[in-house]
Design a protein around this nucleic acid. Structure first.
Lengths: 333, 333
DNA sequence: CTGAAAGCGCTTACAG
DNA sequence: CTGAAAGCGCTTACAG
C-alpha cells in the first residue's frame, strides 16, 4: 500500500515536483499556467492523492499539531473543554493530541515528552500537583505553552482561568441572602491554587457573617466514600436551614449519591449548590444550582493565545481571567 | 527554540551522525565502542536531546501512530475503551490519535482523511451509519483497519465485537425466569447491525414465551424526551410485574431520570436491566443489573489485530466475538 | 510560467 | 568499530 507522492503526480503530468507542490498548496492567483494547474489537480483527484503531512512538517518545522494535557479526561469539565479546543484548533488548521495524566505528575511529564517527540507546535496544559519542574523545563526550552483552568504560582507562563475566588464569594453572598443557619463547604484537601482560591473565597466571605460553617475536605481520588463519611458527620437535618456548597462537579455527584441513599431531600431538607456541570446532573431529582464556566470562550482564548505564541507574536505571560456565572435552578430555597 | 539534533550531538562528540543514530537506537550488544557509546549518551542527556519522531517516521515509513474513531466519545463506553486502547497501544510503542465523529458519516470521513494525512499506521474504527463508503475506500487502499464494537455487514474487514444477539437472549431468559407479565425493550430505531442484533435477540427469545412485550424505540440523538414519552405511554405500574430492558447505558440513564421524576421505584414498581456501564449508574438509588462487555480484552485484541496487520501478518478478515456477561445487582426482583 | 537543487532530521545498507 | 552517502516526501529561494 505504497501511497502516491508528489513525485508520481509530477511524472504523470510531465512537470516538476516543484510545480506540483505549488499547485497543490498555493491559492488561486498563483504563477502556474491554468492548463498545467487543472491537469495536476485532475491527476491528484484521480489517484486519490493524500499529502504526506509528516514530510511537510519536517521541511517546514511546523507540525500543525498541538498537545492538550488535562488532569482527568473522565471529568466532564475536561472532556467538554477538550471538545471545544479541538474545534478551535481545527479552525486554525491544527490537529489536537489529547492526553490525560490522571493527576499523576509522572504521567504528566511523560506526556510532555511524548508530545515533544511528536513535534507538537505547542501545548495547552492543566498542570497537576508537582508538575512544576516539567513545566519549567518546557519554558526554559521556550516551548509555546498555555495553562488552562489551573495555574502555577511560581512559574511564569501565559494562562486562561476563571475568577475562582470572586465567584466563590458570590456563591456565599447568594446563600447568605437566603438566611441559612449553616453552610457546609465540600472541597479538596489539596495545594492546587485554583481550588484553594475557591476555598478562601468561601472562608473570607463567611468570616464576615454570623453563619456557622463546616468543611468536608477530601482527597482527589476515591472521593465518594470520604464525602459520605464527612456528610454523615457534619450534616444534620433537624429543621435548621443548611446549605451544602460542592466545589466541583465530581464532589456534587458523590454528595448527591449520599442524599439519595439517606433519603435526604433537596431542597426540602438541605439546599445544594455546585461548581461546574456534568451530564450526571440530569439524574438529580432536583435541577441543581451551579457555577458555570464559559468553556467555549476559554477554549477559544487558549488556542488563540497558543497560536500567537507559535507564530512568534509576543503575548506576554499574563493570566487571562474569565468570569464564571451562577446559574439558578431549584436546589436552593 | 531550535532543538538539538543528532547532528549537533555528532559534532560535540566528534563522531558521525550514523554512529550517534546507532547508539541512540540499538540495544546494548551493539557494534559501537563502549567509550563512544557512553560519551554520546552523556551528551544527549546533558543537552536534553529529544528525538524528532517526524524525521524518523519519514525515513522509516512508520509513524507509530494509530487512529481511533469512535461514534461518540461522550459515551462512557467509548471513552472507557479508548483508555484501554491507549494503554495497549502505548505498550506496543504507538501513540493514539482519538477522534469522535458523533454519529456523523461526514465527520467520520473527514477523520479518516485527517488520520491518513497524519500518516497513521492503521485505524481502529466504530463505523457509523452511512460510513460504508469511506471504510471501503480505506480497504481498497489496503489500509490496516479493525472495526470495534460495531461491524459492517457488506464490507469485509477484521473486527472485534461481542455476542449481542446471544447475550440479549440471556437477558430475556433471566427475566423470563423471574415470571414477569410484561417486558419493555428500550432500543434505538437504527440500522446499526450490532444494535439490531440486540433487538432481534430480544424478539426471537420472547416470541417463544407467553410474556407480553412492548418496545420503546428512539433516535440516536436527544433520547431523553423520547424515552420519557415512550415510557409514559407503555409503562403501567398497577401491580403487574413489569421489567424494562434498556439496550444501552445512555438509554438506561435517560430512563432512570424518568423513574426519578415520576417517583417510580426500582425494583418495587418496576424491574430494570441495562446494557453497558457508566459512572452515572452510581447515582441510581438502586444498583442496576447490566450486561458487561470485556472492554480491556476487546481493546487489547483490537490493538493486537491492528498491529499484526501493520506488520504484514495475515490476520484474516474474521470478526472476533467476545462474550458479554450479565452482572446481577439489585434492580431486578 | 516552470525546473533544478538544497535541505528538514533521521536510518541503514555498504564499504572500509 | 566507524563513516560517507543515499533517501524518505515535501517546500521554497533562486535562476531562467
Amino acid at each position: 500500500m505504497k501511497r502516491a507522492s508528489i513525485k508520481d503526480i509530477a511524472k504523470m503530468a510531465g512537470v516538476s515536483v516543484a510545480t506540483v507542490s505549488y499547485v497543490l498548496n498555493k491559492k488561486e492567483g498563483s504563477r502556474i499556467g491554468e492548463a498545467t494547474r487543472v491537469k495536476i489537480l485532475e491527476i491528484a483527484e484521480a489517484i486519490n492523492y493524500i499529502p504526506n503531512k509528516i514530510a511537510k512538517s519536517l521541511k517546514t518545522s511546523k507540525s500543525k499539531l498541538i498537545g492538550l494535557i488535562v488532569a482527568d479526561i473522565s471529568n466532564d469539565f475536561y472532556s467538554g473543554i477538550a471538545r471545544h479546543i479541538e474545534d478551535e484548533a481545527m479552525k486554525l488548521g491544527y490537529t489536537l493530541l489529547i492526553g490525560s495524566c490522571d493527576e499523576n505528575p509522572d504521567k504528566f511529564r511523560k506526556l510532555t515528552e511524548l508530545f515533544s517527540e511528536q513535534q507538537v507546535d505547542g501545548m495547552i496544559i492543566a498542570p497537576v500537583i508537582d508538575s512544576d519542574e516539567a513545566v519549567q523545563k518546557m519554558i526554559s526550552d521556550q516551548y509555546p505553552l498555555v495553562t488552562l483552568d489551573r495555574y502555577l504560582t511560581h512559574v511564569d507562563v501565559a494562562g486562561i482561568m476563571i475568577n475562582n475566588f470572586e465567584v466563590s464569594g458570590q456563591v456565599c453572598a447568594f446563600l447568605a441572602g437566603k438566611k441559612f443557619d449553616e453552610i457546609i463547604y465540600v472541597g479538596y484537601d489539596t495545594r492546587l491554587p485554583h481550588l484553594l482560591d475557591r476555598q478562601t473565597g468561601f472562608e473570607k466571605y463567611m468570616a464576615e457573617t454570623e453563619i456557622v460553617t463546616r468543611k468536608v475536605m477530601v482527597g482527589l481520588h476515591n472521593i465518594a466514600a470520604e464525602i459520605h463519611a464527612g456528610l454523615r458527620e457534619n450534616l444534620v437535618t433537624d429543621g435548621r436551614r443548611t446549605a451544602v456548597y460542592f466545589s466541583s462537579n465530581k464532589l456534587a455527584v458523590a454528595g448527591r449519591s449520599y442524599f439519595i441513599k439517606e433519603n435526604i431531600r433537596v431542597p426540602e431538607d438541605v439546599s445544594v449548590i455546585a461548581f461546574d456541570e456534568t451530564e450526571a446532573y440530569t439524574l438529580f431529582p432536583t435541577e441543581i444550582d451551579f457555577v458555570k464556566q464559559p468553556l467555549k470562550e476559554m477554549a477559544g482564548a487558549s488556542v488563540k493565545l497558543l497560536d500567537d505564541q507559535i507564530n512568534g507574536n509576543p503575548s506576554g505571560n499574563e493570566r487571562t481571567v474569565f468570569t464564571a456565572e451562577l446559574i439558578h435552578k431549584k436546589s436552593v430555597r
